[in-house]
Nucleic acid binder design. Structure first.
Lengths: 252, 252
DNA sequence: CGTGAATTTGACTGACATCAACTCAGGTGG
DNA sequence: CCACCTGAGTTGATGTCAGTCAAATTCACG
């Protein structure tokens, strides 16, 4: 059973391709679907730096760190967040296996956000200097790298829509639907998964308080939209959740 | 008087360099500061497509349009916005001369937002296929292109911080400070400028209503922070505005 | 078990939205 | 030249959604 991955993850790739190919790390997802040959694959392997384990709660990079590597998540989950001068944090994203961290650092050679592991995780370091050299020699890889950066721009635009336009209920529904589709794209159940982040982190990401998130969960539970037990969540009515997300349905 | 442009615009460039170099269009800002030689410049000239005038209110591209070109703004101002399925718009940015439009479209070969001119404007079309070919041959240009995409990611992260964390007053101050620094980077007065967008558009961008924007303007006026006359605005106390933006000062 | 942290729930508050009335600038035509 | 019109912007009164504060409950883990 070959399923298309949604464009927002890795355009054109199938799960089977990705699974088979994940020889060294998720960075391969960058290129494989585009038809790199074995020779190219080997060159990519060579530049990918050491794997690095990041314990739950540990920092992968911090705002202001000088930019050396991109990081491909092999395993686990991360959050990235910004801090303003008053010390307020804003979580800008939750990343999972197969996603790339650090692209915001290219512009000024230093990281503009911090990244922390939400659970014990593993990444591949990709020295950016070396990658850039390779990009100049491998048009296929270049094209795909651009797609990934562009995808990040698109993702952030969606969050802007969410934060700027949506009500609390709609935001939270959008959040669940987004996680669901990303797990589905990875071959996991789209309807039953663990929330790797705390209520507080969800609230921060969605521009809401922890109490609001808790109330929304209770509300969704009462309305039969989800079943929740601690951080385990089951979506009981995905179509309705999607309708709420789209704004075509206010609520159950 | 050579001033450094802030990293958020074009790292390392000076205004004089940019002015002198703007032979064909702002796309040159991409590469010139990085030290392209004359030969390289000529090649860049060749791939830059026709100039295109866009009348006030006219659409440069629309969500769903197939992706062919990036657009470098030569002259004027644009807004980009997303539309959700319920038809709600969210302005994702205001762009001015020297900025690049369309980078969100690379990921899926179609535009994810629409772009409309806020005044009579002019852009250069940059056929992306051709550009990509050139990127493969010109490492300097490649590096700079990546910086620009990364910068867009960074910019959007700042907006997420704004929308997710800031109060109305702080958002509006941040908006003014941002415009101010961008005009300054272009050699215009940082303290007196025209708002090219309506109150409604400002409100939409900041996740506020038109009435709130109006009230904030009045409040700032009363507190001696700005002088306003229609769309002409003068910042009377930039340091305080910056302090409000940073969250270190609640208000005057 | 016991302790502290995370989460839930409830009561109250406040910031911003909504609704509505009004003002003003700029164009149009008599 | 000016009366009129229109749309943008302003201001005020009121409403509401989500925040704040506080207490209860559950969970994680030694």
């Amino acid at each position: 059973m070959i399923r298309e991955l949604p464009a927002l993850l890795i355009p054109g790739a199938t799960i089977e391709v990705l699974k088979a190919s994940c020889a060294s790390c998720s960075m391969h997802q960058l290129c494989l679907p585009m038809g790199l040959d074995n020779n190219d694959m080997e060159r990519l392997d060579e530049i990918i730096g050491r794997r690095r384990k990041v314990a739950r709660g540990a920092t992968l990079f911090r705002i202001g760190d000088s930019f050396q590597n991109l990081y491909a998540i092999r395993l686990g989950h991360f959050k990235t967040y910004q801090v303003n001068r008053a010390g307020a944090e804003q979580i800008t994203g939750f990343q999972m296996a197969g996603e790339l961290l650090g692209m915001d650092a290219i512009s000024a050679d230093q990281h503009h956000c911090s990244a922390i592991a939400l659970e014990d995780s593993e990444v591949c370091e990709i020295p950016f200097g070396t990658l850039q050299q390779l990009l100049g020699e491998m048009p296929t890889l270049l094209r795909h790298f651009h797609r990934m950066m562009s995808q990040e721009i698109t993702r952030e635009q969606s969050v802007m829509l969410l934060l700027g336009n949506m009500q609390a209920t709609q935001r939270f529904a959008a959040f669940l639907v987004n996680l669901s589709s990303r797990y589905e794209a990875r071959g996991y159940s789209p309807n039953t998964f663990q929330l790797r982040m705390s209520r507080e982190e969800i609230g921060n990401y969605l521009g809401l308080t922890i109490e609001s998130i808790s109330r929304l969960l209770s509300k969704f539970k009462k309305e039969g939209l989800v079943r929740v037990s601690n951080r385990e969540i089951e979506l009981l009515n995905p179509p309705l959740l999607k309708a709420i997300t789209a704004g075509t349905e206010t609520c159950a």
